[in-house]
């Protein structure tokens, strides 16, 4: 019999490969993972992943749970995987990593900036800071406006850029 010990790090590596079902970002960069616990279970390990829902009752949660169970469960040495959704601490857009923000921006989705500063990077870097302005993810202009406070999913709003005439999506601040 092979006695395999699985460590937290290899589980995190697997979680980093799981994308959000609706956005081009991994669930780790999205800030969903609160903790990973590994406990011995016979000659293998029982894994418990504590995760935070972005929006309460988001239909993507069940898909994410299944993805975690499938991929972590496929690791050698894992006997069982339990995913637990908790509301405390609350998820917030501030948990999205810098890499995650950049990945979303590259796909035309902007994230409210924690400090009220423009989080421009690369081609989208702008010098101006205007409170409340949402810079266009495509051209960086701040000549943007909210088109609809509701969007294609519960977490997103629709914005429009008057400079490059593109629509884009902006995450709601929760």
């Amino acid at each position: 019999m092979v006695n395999r010990v699985i460590d937290r790090r290899s589980i995190m590596d697997v979680l980093r490969t799981i994308p959000d079902p609706e956005m081009p970002i991994s669930i780790v960069d999205l800030g969903l993972i609160e903790s990973v616990e590994v406990a011995p279970s016979g000659d293998q390990s029982a894994v418990r992943v504590v995760a935070l829902p972005t929006f309460v009752g988001c239909p993507a949660l069940d898909m994410i749970r299944r993805d975690i169970e499938d991929r972590v469960g496929a690791l050698l040495g894992v006997r069982s995987v339990e995913v637990q959704w908790v509301n405390e601490p609350p998820w917030s857009v501030d948990r999205i990593s810098a890499a995650g923000r950049e990945s979303l921006r590259a796909h035309g989705v902007t994230v409210p900036d924690p400090g009220g500063q423009l989080a421009g990077s690369g081609a989208a870097t702008v010098a101006l800071t205007v409170a409340g302005a949402v810079p266009c993810p495509f051209c960086g202009s701040i000549m943007t406006r909210q088109d609809s406070p509701f969007g294609p999913t519960r977490c997103r709003m629709i914005y429009y850029c008057d400079a490059c005439r593109n629509s884009f999506e902006h995450l709601k601040r929760v």
Partner: peptide, 10 residues
Amino acid sequence: SHLARRLAAE
């Protein structure tokens, strides 16, 4: 109380 804080934000 934990759930309500989430709901209130939305």
